[in-house]
Design a protein around this nucleic acid. Structure first.
Length: 188
DNA sequence: CTCGGGATGCGT
DNA sequence: CGCATCCCGAGG
């Protein structure tokens, strides 16, 4: 049984809420990954919300396909995809069956983090997260999120999402959330 | 089947 | 700013 002392695994109900609330509340929580007997963890300091088929920046805007099936699946599972033929990005599925998800963009290292975590592909590389974890239940042992008993106090900044200029008006919406002033937030 | 392009990161 | 590198979705 893997666990981080003093932290509580986020329950299914956490993810089964509206995506903006989940995105905001993910800031400060711990992303925990167990790989080859090593327990790695980092505090989430930057995320982006993807709001379903109507959101032209979301993969689910293509509808239900082989690739987006996980996004349209149950809340509290990981949606992991390959990008540019060489990188991976990790999302958590929200609500449930709605094609909504939150992209994890940056972590502040907490435990056994050996590598950079200042960007969605960097954190996946460092935590050994790839497509084999697509669909992984976040209430399992290999990959999950956890919250401290005390609430995480921080100033939250909202900005447009990164790298989605093709999405028209959706590109301008303030769907990127990050911990203001945290040095591990990705720069751009 | 071909083809265009991508929720990135790194080097120039 | 160019580019690596390959999967996916659209179209013929």
């Amino acid at each position: 049984m893997t666990a981080v002392p003093g932290w509580l695994r986020l329950p299914r109900e956490f993810y089964q809420r509206d995506t903006l609330s989940v995105a905001r509340d993910l800031l400060g929580t711990l992303l925990v990954r167990e790989h080859e007997g090593v327990l790695m963890a980092g505090r989430i300091v930057e995320v982006e919300a993807y709001l379903g088929p109507a959101d032209l920046a979301a993969h689910s805007s293509k509808g239900l396909t082989a690739r987006t099936a996980t996004m349209f699946g149950a809340a509290g599972h990981a949606y992991v995809y390959m990008i540019y033929g060489m990188h991976h990005c990790m999302n958590v599925v929200t609500e449930g069956g709605t094609g909504t998800a939150v992209l994890i963009r940056a972590l502040e290292p907490v435990c056994n983090v050996d590598g950079r975590t200042q960007g969605p592909a960097l954190l996946c590389r460092t935590l050994h997260i790839d497509r084999r974890l697509n669909g992984e239940d976040l209430l399992g042992e290999r990959l999950y999120l956890a919250a401290a008993r005390e609430p995480y106090r921080c100033r939250v900044a909202r900005r447009p999402r990164i790298g989605v200029d093709y999405a028209g008006a959706w590109a301008r919406r303030l769907l990127r959330f990050y911990v203001s002033g945290n040095p591990y937030v990705s720069r751009r």
